[in-house]
């Protein structure tokens, strides 16, 4: 029987944390989708050789500290304003690869105007959208994306559409805009899903450098703390409840 020592050699390496993701301990809760998406961002930037040319705009929300974990240049925007900040960064430095990283509260509530208008102007940026159907950072309040009947701290009996309105499929709205060239919905709960999501992210980044317009990659995600489930239960709940309402796949690819 071959021993572990004989297997653990550089030439046998098949997977390790991307180099751009540093060793700082991430503050995310155990199992949080944010971590997986961070790894994908780091991997894609590395594989494109854009380590020195990428500028991220981090949001207000749990991902506010993204700049501590991925070793590229970052700007931190006020709540919801990331696409406006990214617009300025990209217009002033068109040779840079610019993206925003936003939760659903940031992107689809307080930042709705900035999101829609950046996409409508066709800014050559990538918008990474983490849709966990809840405000994670502030303690699990209802978001525009919260599903009908879903319980949160501000709708403890479940979202009532008569009172709270309907869950917002903002990616579908954005897909209607002429400035958006690529709108896709992905997830990161299994290894095949993650590989697919990585391809989508790569295409989005390539679109931005090719000047094709705005690309938006939505990640249907979990927030085990806000949902009050274990990470494993959260993934199951997401597949059973989120995917029927937020179906995966490309909404637009031009």
């Amino acid at each position: 029987m071959i021993t572990a020592e004989e297997i653990i050699k550089p030439e046998n390496l098949v997977y390790t944390k991307p180099k751009l993701m540093n060793d700082t301990h991430m503050h995310y809760c155990p199992g949080c989708s944010h971590g997986v998406v961070h790894k994908l961002v780091a991997e894609v930037v590395e594989e494109m050789g854009m380590e020195e040319k990428t500028i991220g705009v981090s949001p207000v929300g749990c991902a506010v500290f993204a700049y501590n974990y991925i070793d590229i240049d970052w700007v931190e925007a006020a709540h919801g304003r990331a696409p406006a900040v990214a617009t300025a960064v990209k217009r002033l430095s068109p040779d840079k690869m610019v993206f925003t990283y936003q939760g659903d509260g940031d992107l689809a509530a307080i930042g709705t105007a900035e999101t829609i208008h950046a996409c409508n102007r066709g800014e050559n940026i990538v918008i990474i959208f983490i849709n966990n159907a809840i405000y994670g950072m502030t303690g699990g309040q209802m978001a525009p994306t919260t599903l009908e009947g879903m319980k949160t701290s501000t709708c403890p009996f479940g979202r009532d559409v008569k009172l709270n309105g309907y869950p917002l499929k903002i990616s579908n709205l954005i897909a209607q805009l002429d400035g958006a060239c690529y709108v896709t919905r992905q997830s990161v709960q299994t290894s095949p899903a993650i590989k697919k999501a990585k391809k989508a992210l790569r295409q989005a980044f390539e679109n931005s450098m090719a000047g094709k317009g705005t690309s938006l990659v939505e990640f249907v995600s979990t927030c085990s703390s806000g949902w009050k489930m274990t990470p494993v239960q959260s993934n199951k709940w997401m597949e059973e409840n989120m995917f029927p309402f937020y179906p995966l796949g490309d909404l637009k690819n031009e």
């Binding site: 991430m26 199992g31 993650i194």
Partner: peptide, 10 residues
């Protein structure tokens, strides 16, 4: 799948 990049595979 590890969100924290803890696992290296050979």
């Amino acid at each position: 799948v590890c969100p924290d990049g803890c696992i290296t595979v050979y």
